[in-house]
């Protein structure tokens, strides 16, 4: 009864690190690398992303966010750092075998703490679509349609 599990803290430290140990022992991390200097602000990536996951062409529902507020081109997308995993109360956020941070909706309480604690502002939400937040799952579809290779899916 009420036995303390000394490893939980250790686990946590591993979980939040940018790198994951795979079964094979190698370290991989799949993520979307951005080259903002190549971006021509065409919006293709956002169309594709929102269409794929929300069946709607709507940049505010895209997980990759390209903006040009006048001050210059900007691309914002999750870098799979794992900070959100550490704050999730139900362990709904986990790293899959490719090192991508994924959300298990069945465990998610829609508290949006992960949104508030994402250091780069890339955990997103839209009440009109679903109560749970959403994020880049490193599928790479946006990279495929990007005409200038401003987005590249990498495994490193």
């Amino acid at each position: 009864m009420r036995l303390f599990l000394p490893f939980c803290i250790l686990n946590l430290a591993v979980e939040t690190s940018r790198f994951v140990q795979t079964d094979q022992g190698g370290i991989i991390l799949r993520w979307l690398k951005t080259y903002v200097e190549k971006c021509i602000n065409c919006g293709k990536c956002m169309e594709t992303c929102s269409k794929t996951y929300f069946k709607e062409e709507n940049p505010s529902l895209s997980r990759v966010v390209v903006t040009n507020p006048g001050a210059g081109q900007n691309i914002s997308v999750c870098n799979q750092c794992g900070a959100c995993m550490a704050v999730c109360p139900t362990e709904a956020l986990y790293r899959d075998k490719n090192g991508v941070v994924q959300l298990d909706k069945s465990k998610c309480t829609s508290c949006l703490m992960c949104v508030g604690f994402c250091p780069t502002g890339n955990m997103l939400y839209a009440a009109s679509k679903q109560t749970e937040p959403f994020k880049c799952v490193a599928c790479g579809l946006c990279a495929k349609v990007c005409p200038t290779q401003a987005l590249v899916l990498v495994n490193d």
Binding site: A13, A86, V87, P89, T90, T109, C111, M113
Partner: peptide, 12 residues
């Protein structure tokens, strides 16, 4: 340290 210690979901 470093644990989500909310006494209900969403308490950051």
């Amino acid at each position: 340290q470093g644990m989500p210690d909310g006494c209900w979901y969403g308490c950051s």
